[in-house]
């Protein structure tokens, strides 16, 4: 993948993967952003609407902050970044050094099940780029 520009075809395939692996299991909204806070793509279940641009800016900042803290205490990274609420939870996962996958989900899904699906999603996305 030529970072910075994603082809239409790549985006469509990524969206398919996100829908299949995450939206279908009940994730409300999933966003891929880069570390600068740009949105690569966003998918939702049709009923949940967030201000994804502000969300991306804050999420990139949040992730970068935690990453910087990890380095300060001598960790490579904190692999799990998860915020738990009453009705909404947010899960962050690194795709690679430049990209982040963020899932927002409710009470119906367990964290374990979500993580499993996130891992598979990321594997599929990486394969897609490896091929192109």
């Amino acid at each position: 993948m030529n970072y910075g520009v994603v082809s239409q075809e790549q985006l469509e395939k990524i969206d398919e993967i996100l829908t299949e692996k995450l939206i279908k299991i009940g994730v409300d909204c999933v966003i891929i952003i880069d570390m600068a806070g740009n949105i690569i793509t966003a998918k939702d279940n049709g009923t949940t609407k967030y201000d994804v641009y502000s969300f991306a800016a804050l999420a990139a900042g949040n992730f970068a902050t935690v990453d910087a803290m990890a380095k300060l205490v001598g960790e490579q990274e904190f692999s799990l970044l998860f915020h738990k609420g009453t009705d909404c939870n947010i899960h962050f996962s690194k795709i690679d050094d430049e990209l982040l996958l963020i899932s927002m989900f409710g009470r119906e899904i367990s964290l374990g099940f979500l993580r499993l699906n996130v891992v598979e999603t990321i594997e599929q996305i990486k394969k897609l780029w490896a091929r192109d």
């Binding site: 994603v6 985006l11 600068a36 740009n38």
Partner: peptide
């Protein structure tokens, strides 16, 4: 680095 979405024809620029 700006991000360009060729499908939706959106360019995101960070200032």
């Amino acid at each position: 680095m700006s991000f360009i979405n060729l499908r939706e024809k959106i360019v995101q620029v960070k200032i």
